[in-house]
Design a protein around this nucleic acid. Structure first.
Length: 289
DNA sequence: ATCCAGGATAGCG
DNA sequence: CGCTATCATGGA
């Protein structure tokens, strides 16, 4: 519908730093799974709105005239230099940032984020992507963009009225029941994703963990990627590996709890942002994928 | 063929 | 508290 850089709405506050966002890295760094590469950018939906994102438009000087929804989604307003300065000054952190300085933590719609990470459990990024695109195709709202047919993520109510078999047919496996239960919790109002915005982090984590299939890791992902709680530090297999090998090299075993305690004190107020650099770097260099 | 993936959880000691 | 088996599915 609206391409980058065509918005006419006034922006009273110019972007503090020019947008130095690496679009492809950001959209393929395991925080969002539905963007489709095109000849000159990426096509997908921001919530219900189809958008064609282009690196070239992010790089042009007038980038602060990019549509407000896009700016918000991509975190273009994040004070990235300031954030980077809060990171611990160690060689591993440094090389992770140097590996991909344009990586950003984006801001996703809460339901979409919760649902996709529910389906992410014990799955590779490519699998999560396949599942997400299937769910969108079958149960999302179809929209058109530059001759392409895209789909928004299915709403809680759309999923709540499905059968288990519908979801199993999307390769969800043991995650199907969890997604169905989550959709019904949101649909019934028992889980209020809007209200989470105003709750303290600890309480929001507890609320999210009441959803079957959501534990510490996924809850932290949702708070980080949807609610912009930059101190939240999800620990998946890759980050756990990075932490063990880097900060506890002599120890045979290190518990998840120990790593959480360490991360909370070591990485600073933007620990979650640091975590995303570590994850991206580790997965792409140590994972040979 | 075997191992592993942006995990969570029940059951056990 | 910590440890373990188990849960589907597909790519490497």
């Amino acid at each position: 519908m609206m391409a980058l850089g065509r918005s006419t709405d006034l922006d009273p506050e110019p972007v503090e730093h020019p947008a130095v966002v690496n679009l492809s890295a950001t959209l393929n760094s395991g925080q969002v799974f539905h963007w489709i590469a095109t000849e000159n950018g990426f096509a997908g939906c921001i919530d219900q709105t189809p958008v064609h994102l282009m690196q070239s438009e992010l790089d042009t000087p007038g980038a602060n005239r990019i549509g407000a929804a896009v700016r918000k989604y991509l975190g273009i307003h994040h004070p990235i230099q300031k954030i980077l300065r809060t990171f611990p000054d160690d060689p591993v952190m440094l090389s992770a940032v140097q590996f991909c300085p344009g990586l950003r933590v984006i801001e996703q719609p809460s339901w979409e984020c919760l649902a996709t990470f529910l389906t992410s459990a014990l799955k590779q990024v490519s699998h999560i992507r396949a599942i997400t695109l299937l769910l969108r195709e079958r149960f999302g709202r179809p929209v058109e963009l530059d001759g392409m047919r895209l789909h928004s993520y299915p709403s809680p109510s759309a999923i709540a009225r499905l059968t288990l078999a519908d979801l199993l047919a999307c390769k969800l496996g043991f995650r199907a029941q969890n997604l169905l239960a989550a959709a019904r919790l949101v649909e019934s109002g028992e889980l209020d994703l809007l209200a989470l915005r105003d709750r303290p982090t600890k309480e929001a984590l507890d609320q999210l963990c009441r959803v079957p299939g959501v534990g510490s890791k996924i809850a932290n992902c949702v708070l980080l990627f949807a609610y912009q709680r930059f101190d939240c530090f999800p620990i998946d297999v890759w980050v756990a590996r990075a932490l063990r090998e880097t900060y506890f090299p002599a120890r045979a075993k290190i518990s998840l709890k120990e790593m959480q305690v360490f991360a909370a004190s070591y990485f600073g107020p933007y620990a979650g942002y640091a975590q995303q650099f570590l994850f991206h770097h580790w997965r792409l260099t140590k994972g040979k994928r």
